[in-house]
Structure formats: C-alpha cells, structure tokens
Nucleic acid binder design. Structure first.
Lengths: 187, 187
DNA sequence: TGACATATTGACTAATCAGTCTATAAATAT
DNA sequence: ATATTTATAGACTGATTAGTCAATATGTCA
C-alpha cells in the first residue's frame, strides 16, 4: 500500500464518518490527505470506488482483529467472551472504523460485489455459535436472531464507551459482557 | 399542519433515510412531495431547518407512541416489557422514522436547541428504570450502561425484524424480549 | 544514457446545488 | 368590494461539485 494512497483512505475515513459521503468533497479529502485532487483520481477512478476500497480495508481490518480459533481447552463461555471482547476492543480502539462500518454497511454506494467479498468470512463465526446451541449451553434461539443479538450487544457496548470513555475499565466491560451472556445462557 | 408542509416532511424523511442529508437535493424533495422548490422554502427557511423540523416531528411521534404510565398492579417485568414492546412496535411500524432517528441523532445538522427540546422528556423513562434497581429486581448496573443496553436491545430487535419480516410473530418477539430481560434480571 | 511508464500537480469544466426572486393565485380581513 | 397577507410556482443565479486534462516530475529498466 502506497503512502499517499493510504493517507487518502485515512482522510476519507475521517471525513466520511464526520460529514457523510455526499457531505465530503473530493477536494476536502485531497486537502486533508495532503495531495492534489488529480492524485486522488489517479489511485481511485471515482468517489464510489474510493468508498468501496475503504469499506474493504475497514472490514479486513476488523476481520484480522477478531480472527482466532476456538480453544477446546477453554469453556464455551470463555471462548465466546474472548470473541465478544475482540469485537469490542476493535470498536473502542478504532472508533472511526467502527462507526464507518455502522453507517455505511447499508449504503447504496457500497456495491454488492464489495459486500460479497467479505460476507462469507463471517460463516466461521456462525458455526462457532452453533456449537453452543448444540451443547445446550445457550438458549435454543434461531441463528439469525442470535447473530443480531450478538451484534446489538457489541453496538451498544462500543457506543456506550465511546460516549463515556471515563467509564471504560475491566469491571464495567465485564459487566457489559455479563448482560450479554446472561441473556443467552440457559437457566 | 398544512397538507403540503406534511408532504414535504414525508418526502424528506424517505429521501434523507435513503440517500442521506447531502445526498438529497431540495429539488428532489420538492418533486417527491409534488410541490415547487419555492413552496419548500416558503415553509422552511433552509435545508437545515427542514431536517430539524423533521427530527422534532419524528421524536414527538416516538414519544407519543411510547408514553404511558407505570402500572403498579402489574409486575416490574411486565411494565418494562410493555415499554420495550412499545419501542419495538414503533420501530417496526415506522421503519423510516426509526432509521431516521438512528442515523441523524448525532448529525451536526440537528442543532443542540432541537435536541434539548426533547432530551429531558426521557427522564421519565430513566426514573422508571431506577424502580427496578431499587427493588433489587434487576442487576446493580450503573444507569448509563443500563440505558444503552436497553437501547441496544431495541436497535437489534427492530433491525432484525426489518431484515427478516417473515420472522415477525409473537413467539419470536417474546424470544427477543427474554434475551433482553434475562440479561438484566437477578438470579 | 535514454526511453518509457508511473506519479503528481492544480487549473479547468460541465453539471448540480441551495436558495432567491418575481409573478400570480388564493384566502382573509376590513 | 377592496386591500392585505399568505401560498404556490418555476425560472434563475452564484457557488460548489466530481472528474478531466495537459504539463511536469520521478522512477525503472535495458
């Protein structure tokens, strides 16, 4: 990845989150990135291609951070907690990226081709969940609801600590996890 | 509320949700509403005033739908379930409004004056919650986290049934509530 | 060295935007 | 009935936008 190309993506991430896709001009992006508009269009054919690249890079970054294997030596709860924490730390440490995913995952400017490129990688995560229901460690709730419940917990926890950074500590993060876990555990 | 004024707000709601604030031109709004641009600027001095009016109307509509008093004859769980359901039905039956609130509650175009106009009305809701912690029916979790947990559950449930409308029935809605309730209940 | 490709620049352009203005039409008041 | 205010229309304008283009610089390879 070229240095200028990277700074264009960095500037875009910041400005798209702060002012939206249409609220950010290519001139502003170029200025923020410290390049000329011509350079921007040298690396990206148009604005839409830019946001698609950004979406791919952001999601790749998330996938990299949350990847890791199920550890049979640990309990199911511990395994799921580690995954939950990885998601949350990603959101807390990369607030622009997290907000970008939140805002733009339904954007019409992100093409279906771009989405396909990533969607199926979450399959691993889904199977991971299934393990818990099979072993009757978590409630018999259909998969789609379980996934959305999981994501809702990540969403509310990350946005909570973005809003109240002074509340961020291990105790409160565990508290937030227990809210999530007690919702799906059996008994 | 004038008929044309209302159709301008309706058109704005739809287009702002679908294409964003800057992604929607005043000409498009006027066309969708079936009026001339001059009429739009007769009712709203500028685009920002339009989105602020829209925000107020949308939140007023939400507040109207979720309002109601705590019923001492019913259990705390039942009371909170009814509130939770009111929020969810609002989101399910008014998907544009719900998405609009989600997308624009942090928008810089919604002035702090507009926000103040509504924020304090949620105080009732907060006190409602406190009742549960005082009676030790729900976990001793600090208020801000509890509120964000509540909102996260609404968010994930509404977006879930927007994504999978065929899954919407009483059984699954109750299931989603139990995920939420078991997270905060004691024991 | 010299030839060719790639990188970078910023002035430029056609299209689009928010908002204005003038002209009427409809409603309301005196 | 007449005057005054309010509603509606759409052509128009100055500013801004995404994207182009021609010029120049830098790198690469034989």
């Amino acid at each position: 990845m070229n240095e200028k190309e990277q700074s264009i993506l960095d500037a875009s991430l910041k400005l798209f989150v702060e002012h939206g896709f249409h609220g950010t001009s290519t001139a502003q992006i170029a200025k923020e990135a410290g390049v000329a508009t011509g350079t921007l269009f040298h690396y990206f054919n148009n604005k839409e291609e830019l946001i698609n690249s950004l979406y791919i890079h952001t999601k790749e970054s998330l996938l990299k951070d949350i990847s890791g294997n199920y550890d049979d030596k640990k309990s199911f709860k511990q395994n799921i907690k580690e995954l939950w924490l990885k998601f949350n730390w990603f959101g807390i440490n990369n607030s622009y990226m997290f907000q970008f995913i939140l805002i733009f995952h339904t954007s019409p400017y992100i093409t279906s081709l771009t989405k396909e490129h990533l969607e199926n990688r979450y399959d691993e995560l889904v199977e991971f969940y299934m393990q818990g229901t099979e072993k009757h460690e978590i409630k018999m709730v259909y998969n789609e609801l379980l996934q959305d419940y999981f994501w809702g917990s990540i969403y509310s926890t990350v946005t909570h600590f973005q809003k109240y950074p002074e509340k961020l500590n291990e105790k409160n993060l565990n508290m937030a996890f227990e809210l999530f876990w007690d919702g799906i555990k059996i008994g």
